[in-house]
């Protein structure tokens, strides 16, 4: 057993199936609504830039990463051509590498089978946020079925959301589309308030400052720069704090 929790451990679910069902229920609240709304917004955007219906829907099912999909639609809009578009979209997905590194190690070794490669596709911003928030509260053996529960729901609402947005585009008033577009960043900002460990909170603040600033300097390296510099800074500060104060609660 490579992943062991420091706390005595939460009560496990009766069966993997029960953990899966619980995951489904968790996702059916705010996460599904926010993702669905975001994908309706993306569907409307892709229609307005002249993407075909099938490319739009396929991008939600197969790419399943809203920032990359939006980059793609915007590049189609300005007439960028060929593989450059795909490359730009794929580059915005570099964040998935560290995101996987924070989720997978929390899955116990006996569950780390080929299934992880299926699980990998279901990791997006929303499902990652649910995973890092709920995994520490779950018994290790429940984490993978629980993940599949909410991960599949999050993924499944995206395709119909995109199709609906595409077909409704032009019929939805601008202010409503605006609210749909705004829901996604809003959801993440609000979920940040639930992050407890001090180091992670510092990282969020550092990233929040560095993200826009680095984007002004270089849009293409903004994510990597704000992550590496902001995250390392937060980590260093947290280490120093732990060394100086003995009874740090986090």
């Amino acid at each position: 057993m490579s992943a062991h929790d420091p706390d005595p451990g939460p009560t496990p679910f009766a069966s993997p199936r029960a953990a899966f069902r619980e995951g489904v229920w968790v996702a059916l609240g705010a996460p599904a609504v926010v993702l669905f709304a975001g994908m309706v917004g993306f569907g409307a955007l892709s229609q307005s830039v002249g993407m075909s219906f099938w490319s739009s829907v396929a991008s939600s099912a197969l790419i399943y990463a809203l920032p990359g999909q939006i980059v793609m639609a915007e590049m189609f809009a300005v007439g960028a051509s060929g593989l450059l578009v795909s490359l730009a979209a794929a580059l915005t997905a570099a964040r998935f590498l560290p995101m996987m590194l924070t989720v997978i190690p929390q899955i116990p070794a006996e569950h780390r089978t080929g299934r992880l490669f299926l699980m990998a596709h279901l990791v997006a911003m929303t499902s990652w946020a649910i995973a890092v928030r709920s995994f520490p509260r779950l018994a290790p053996q429940d984490r993978q079925p629980y993940f599949f529960g909410f991960g599949l729901v999050c993924w499944a609402v995206c395709t119909p959301g995109t199709a609906l947005g595409y077909l409704m585009a032009g019929h939805v008033p601008g202010p409503l589309t605006l609210a749909l577009v705004f829901l996604n960043p809003l959801f993440f900002l609000l979920s940040f308030t639930e992050v407890r460990p001090t180091g992670f909170r510092l990282a969020i603040v550092a990233g929040a400052v560095l993200g826009p600033l680095s984007y002004l300097v270089s849009p293409s390296y903004s994510l990597i720069v704000s992550g590496l510099i902001g995250g390392s800074l937060a980590y260093a500060v947290q280490r120093l704090r732990q060394r100086t104060t003995i009874q740090d609660p986090s």
Partner: peptide, 27 residues
């Protein structure tokens, strides 16, 4: 693991705040 978690949080926060502060499109 602690470090990569910090990096990931900073990255996600950076992206989200960039969308709000320097949006493209409708926002």
């Amino acid at each position: 693991f602690q470090w990569i978690s910090c990096v990931t949080y900073a990255m996600v926060a950076g992206l989200v705040f960039r969308i709000v502060m320097l949006p493209v499109g409708l926002l």
